[in-house]
């Protein structure tokens, strides 16, 4: 299963972004292979409806689990609809810390 982690930078050493739609980068982690790739969020600077746009992207990427700091109501609804697991982490962590926690 693929997991998406919101990130402020394009490296695992960078801090994790607690914003969902407005995160600068997305780290997509393949839990089977342990590989992670970074995708730039083109909608980060948009006016409105960013949460929906990002949720749309998540579903398109075939991600099963999203880790972020919070989710807006519209994004929540959409992710719920497509059976995407939402995870909220409220600590200041690096992306690599979260990856390590998942890998155990």
């Amino acid at each position: 299963m693929k997991t998406l982690i919101t990130s402020t930078t394009s490296t695992p050493e960078g801090p994790f972004d607690k914003r969902f739609g407005r995160a600068a980068w997305f780290c997509v982690l393949d839990e089977k292979t342990g590989e992670s790739t970074f995708i730039k969020n083109e909608n980060a600077e948009g006016q409105s409806g960013i949460g929906t746009k990002t949720a749309e992207k998540v579903v398109e990427l075939g991600v099963g689990k999203v880790i972020s700091g919070d989710f807006g109501p519209k994004a929540k609804k959409l992710l719920d609809k497509f059976g995407v697991q939402m995870v909220i982490i409220n600590e200041d962590l690096k992306v690599i810390d979260i990856i390590n926690r998942i890998k155990g």
Binding site: Q47, S48, T52, E56, V59, E60, K74, F82
Partner: peptide, 21 residues
């Protein structure tokens, strides 16, 4: 759409308009 009110997800054959946006 200037207001990001439309959600279209081709692989899921999903298309919807968010009335509140």
């Amino acid at each position: 759409c200037e207001f990001n009110a439309i959600v279209v997800i081709p692989p899921a054959h999903f298309a919807e308009i968010n009335a509140s946006l």
